[in-house]
């Protein structure tokens, strides 16, 4: 019970992310390199890739620009969450 509450508390995102895929398609960028270009910590990139963090629109746009794609390609909401 406590574990479930804690896990729900820590995991805030239901967004599907393709960040890792696009990172590799763009010259196999490391998490640290990507983090440095958008001025966040590596832990933030890790959390986004794991779906543990709902990032801001600003950061989503910055990541999309750096990875030569669109925000919608990078992040998708699960169907049930559109309602």
């Amino acid at each position: 019970m406590l574990c479930k509450i804690l896990s729900n508390y820590l995991k805030e995102s239901t967004i599907k992310t393709y960040l890792r895929k696009y990172r590799f398609e763009n010259g196999e960028l490391s998490q640290q390199q990507l983090a440095d270009t958008v001025k966040v910590s590596r832990q933030t990139i890790v959390a986004i890739e794991r779906g543990d963090y709902n990032l801001s629109v600003k950061l989503a746009l910055q990541l999309a620009r750096k990875l030569n794609t669109t925000v919608e390609n990078l992040f998708q909401l699960e169907e049930k969450d559109y309602a």
Binding site: K39, V40, S41, Q43, Y53, L59
Partner: peptide, 10 residues
Amino acid sequence: KSLVDERQMS
């Protein structure tokens, strides 16, 4: 603010 990561702020 530029010295603090947005997830750290959250």
